[in-house]
Computed example of a mutant assay.
Amino acid sequence: MQLPAFLKRLLVMAPLLALSAGQALAADNHLRIGINDSPQNAAIELAAQLAKEKGIEVEVLSFSDWNTPNLALSNGDLDINYFQHQPFLENAVQQNGYDLVPIAYGVENKVGLYSKKITSFNEVKDGDTVAVADDPVNQGRGLHLYDRAGLIKLRDGVGPKAGLADIEANPKNLKFIELPGPQLARILDDVTVAQSYPSHILAAGTTDPGSALLFSNDQENGHLYALRFVVTSKNVDNPAIRTFIDIFQNDPRVREAISKAYGNPELYSLAWLSGRQEASR
Rank of each mutant, 00 (worst) to 15 (best):
A21S: 14
Y146Q: 07
P160I: 09
L61F: 06
I118R: 08
S74K: 13
V158K: 10
Q84Y: 10
V124H: 10
L179D: 14
Q183K: 13
F63C: 02
N96M: 09
Y114K: 09
S38F: 00
I33A: 02
N81Y: 01
G112R: 04
H223M: 05
N36H: 12
A104D: 12
K234I: 06
F248D: 01
L151C: 07
P252K: 00
P136R: 05
D190W: 14
D147F: 13
D246L: 00
I80M: 14
I177L: 15
L214K: 00
A212M: 03
Y105H: 15
S199H: 06
V101S: 09
N238A: 00
V124Q: 10
D147P: 03
D65W: 11
L267E: 02
T207A: 11
G205N: 13
S64V: 12
E108S: 06
P265F: 00
A212N: 02
L11Y: 12
E266A: 09
I187N: 15
V111K: 13
N250T: 00
H85M: 05
F121V: 10
Q195P: 08
V58Y: 00
A92N: 13
Q249M: 07
R228G: 07
P198N: 04
F83G: 02
Q249W: 08
L270V: 03
I56Y: 04
K234Y: 09
G159E: 14
S120A: 12
Q94C: 12
R255V: 01
D126T: 14
G275F: 07
L89Q: 09
A226N: 04
A257V: 01
S216I: 04
M13G: 13
D166P: 00
I241G: 01
K52M: 04
D37S: 14
L273I: 09
G97I: 02
H30I: 06
Q2T: 15
G157D: 05
I103E: 05
P4D: 06
A279F: 14
P182N: 02
A212Q: 04
G150M: 04
N29L: 04
P180T: 09
I187G: 10
L145D: 08
V107R: 02
P180G: 12
I56E: 04
D237H: 05
